[in-house]
Design a binder for these strands. Structure first.
Lengths: 339, 339
DNA sequence: TACAGAGAGGTGATCGGTCACTTGCCGCGT
DNA sequence: ACGCGGCAAGTGACCGATCACCTCTCTGTA
């Protein structure tokens, strides 16, 4: 034989010998093939326990041409909620018997699609789930036998937009504020390269129109707090705006700062809403009304979509809302006379 | 090129046949064995390109008994900086030819070690890197041939403490504030279950003593902003505290709120510092002095340690500081008379 | 001329499972 | 008695790489 140092793990044949059966029978046992005698089943089980046998997944993968591995592509920037999505995704994959490998994609957009096709051709992964947009790649594709699902529901900041579904929450916010008496709004938009920014802007405009309200306008802030601050400080004194819908908490915070600089009190003189439910927002003065997103379930959902594609089933249509408005101090009925 | 359905991928032997050599020569070529004639090398290269051949990693893994896979264990909670660490870790692993699989560990501490040993016995992973503490598991271990490195430098909130090294930044903060004239401090501590909370408290106490300053005390806030707020509102009027060192940005925000409720202005009446450099902190009013940690490099470093263990080398001793204080509006020389 | 030694390349075994096919046994209908 | 079908279990090939070992050729030296 060979040197004893690395104690070779027992194989299916070792188990078979000990149990007094053929290796094939052990294989059948492992794959829980029904046609095995109970007595045999028992002795195999004992042999396995005695040898502390564990199947060699590499060998199995080779023969089966199945790796049980999924690749999960994530954007490189800091996205607060990514870990939650990751947790949801790995949990869902795990439950389905897959393991998840994380690949962080760098910034140059062009090289991304390239890298993805490499990964696909690589052949190691049965499926690839991208949580970040991939230009020039369809929503759902297959390359060299590997399924690729681009979950365009999420952009680089991990803000979900599920077919615009969750951006509808913007509508919910505006409706509530309108009920409280707000009539004239301002939207601080994010970077339009992000689907979520576009979606929120769109729903903002639609809702204002649908409810017969007024919009002072939309300011392109590109996720920059400074822009949001200036948008407020440069607001004409007679603009009549009483509520600001910011595309995320950072812009909302900038807006708060702008208001304070003008001597306005929030929410008395201006209501402000954010998005993301940043933990700090809950403690700020005033605390920030925001939108909490259930990223864990978004992650699960994305994996389920990929698994559906893998098994050839139609993609599940789950559209329950995973967002929730958290009302806090930064919003209230308008007190400033509408003059 | 290929069009029919399951087009079996070309193997090393297909390449060999096309190039007119033996399969072994191709294998040598793939492993860049030196002893190959240039002419052959060229025809093999051509054959590979023509067939679009790609080595089957499962087969290679089986023969080599090497999987090239590492497991990365992460805590389940939301940790803002985790994705950066993950990015650093995957990048470092990738550069060394490994792929990284993410495993999210649930909360029950007891079951964690259990799960880890399962993963190790599983045999799929060559190494396991835990970014979360594992009770009853040594800092560095080996089980069934798989190396396990517990990077206890990071706790469940992903706050680095590298042998307390980065907590020394607390000392840096206090020194600077002392230079500005602060004499009496207060520390708002996090949950002591977290190494980082303990480390920051310890360095706080040491530094105050070392510099001959005064501490009004340490308040156990357990990462709860409400506790931090109350710590400030309940501060005796004559406490003489002019600077608050909070263990993270959330506690710092709570402290700010407490100060405002008392009618104190920050930083005129009280200086406050945080930790984590939450993006919102930079935009708050006042903006928050905080500590930025280079999580990306922390991730790389952790993987390097694991790889060192795998290859039997001594662990590298890298101790350059990966933290940096970001001074903002919430800190300034004390203006309140010390009376 | 003979022979050793190095370098290039080939042959077959092997890793640890699963698949395809075969064998042995039993029961049942004719 | 015979044949057939169904079920449990065994035999050997196979997945696609790499390793160990062998062969052949060329060169240099005694």
């Amino acid at each position: 034989m060979d040197s004893e140092a690395p104690t070779r793990r027992p194989t299916i044949r070792d188990v078979a010998r000990l149990a007094g059966v053929s290796h094939q029978t052990v294989s059948r046992y492992l794959r829980s093939d029904a046609s095995i005698n109970d007595a045999m089943r028992k002795s195999i089980r004992q042999a396995i326990a005695q040898l502390d046998y564990r199947p060699n997944l590499a060998a199995r993968a080779m023969r089966n041409r199945k790796t049980g591995r999924l690749a999960l592509l994530m954007p490189s920037g800091t996205a607060v909620s990514s870990l939650e999505m990751l947790a949801g995704a790995t949990a869902a994959a795990r439950e389905a018997g897959y393991s998840v490998e994380v690949v962080i994609l760098g910034d140059p957009m062009e090289s991304r699609a390239q890298r993805v096709l490499e990964l696909a051709d690589h052949g190691v992964f049965e499926g690839i789930l991208s949580l970040t947009p991939l230009p020039s790649l369809p929503h759902r594709a297959t390359s060299g036998g590997t399924a690729i699902v681009v979950s365009a529901d999420y952009d680089d900041q991990m803000r979900g937009i599920g077919e615009l579904a969750d951006a509808t929450t913007v509508g919910e916010i505006i409706e509530r504020l309108a009920e409280q008496g707000h009539r004239r709004f301002l939207h601080l938009a994010g970077d339009y390269a992000h689907t979520s920014a576009r979606a929120r802007k769109q729903v903002y405009l639609e809702t204002v129109q649908r409810l017969g309200l007024e919009s002072h306008g939309v300011v392109d802030c590109e996720w920059l707090a400074e822009r949001a601050r200036r948008a407020i400080t440069e607001l004409p004194a007679d603009s009549g705006v009483t509520a600001v819908i910011a595309a995320n908490d950072l812009l909302a915070t900038g807006a708060l700062r702008g208001a304070l600089e003008r001597g306005w009190q929030v929410p008395r003189d201006l209501s402000v809403t954010g998005w993301d439910d940043n933990p700090l927002g809950a403690e700020m003065m005033p605390s920030l009304t925001s939108v909490a997103v259930d990223h864990e379930r978004l992650g699960r959902r994305a994996v389920r979509r990929l698994l559906a594609v893998l098994s050839g089933e139609p993609e599940p249509e789950e559209q329950d809302l995973l967002t929730q408005v958290i009302w806090r101090e930064s919003t209230a009925p308008p007190n400033r006379p509408l003059d």
